[in-house]
């Protein structure tokens, strides 16, 4: 994975809570067996509405998505972060994220940035007010900066290190190959097998 350190760009304000992964990419598009090319299906149904924010020319080219609480709930489909990434997003800022979605984002280098409700509101309002507002998300300093908002965010230390270095997760785990083998040797014989 490419290292992730600092993201600077404009943002799309998706001012609603409980955005589930079925909305991010509907099930009919999960039949592809490739890892790429999901961007065109991002928010497929909502994009049919001409007034949907992603159809607003003023937000074209944004690299940050700002959304309401509990973003990414429901299905575990990694196709959701794939679609966001393929569309051009590098970070999502929200008051809270669903656990599996957050994991999936970290796996592919799409930053899930959790900020207090008020700060997300302030960023949302700033971007609604001025679509050209530039936002900087810095994983090294754990900070989000916009002209009107300065806020720090928490991020799991280990994940942060993995993202900053661009490590391969499987290689990292296989540093413990001896421990895995020892664990396997000690498993009870009655456990189920295929």
């Amino acid at each position: 994975m490419e290292p992730v350190t600092r993201i600077e760009g404009t943002a799309v304000p998706l001012d609603r809570s409980d955005v589930d992964t079925d909305q991010i990419v509907p099930a009919q598009f999960l039949k592809r067996i490739e890892r790429t090319g999901f961007g065109p299906f991002l928010f497929h149904e909502w994009r049919k509405d001409p007034s949907f924010v992603l159809n607003d020319e003023r937000y074209a080219g944004a690299s940050i998505l700002i959304a309401g609480a509990n973003f990414g709930g429901g299905s575990s489909r990694e196709h959701a972060p794939w679609a966001l990434e393929d569309f051009g997003f590098r970070a999502v800022i929200a008051p809270s994220f669903a656990d599996i979605f957050r994991n999936n984002c970290c796996k592919i280098g799409l930053l899930p940035v959790e900020l207090p409700q008020e700060s997300v509101r302030a960023l949302m309002d700033a971007v609604l007010d001025e679509p050209a507002t530039r936002i900087v998300v810095d994983l090294e300093t754990l900070s989000v900066a916009a002209p009107s908002v300065e806020e720090s965010f928490a991020f799991d230390d280990f994940r942060r290190w993995c993202l900053l270095e661009g490590f391969d997760d499987i290689d990292l785990t296989m540093r413990h190959a001896d421990e895995i083998a020892a664990f396997e040797a000690a498993r009870p014989s009655w456990l189920p097998t295929a």
């Binding site: 575990s76 994991n103 785990t173």
Partner: peptide, 21 residues
Amino acid sequence: AFGIGTSEVEHVLATQTIPQA
């Protein structure tokens, strides 16, 4: 028992383990 994403599926297939916070 818990759900995982496709990158994690790959990780489990390769290592039979999963890192969990």
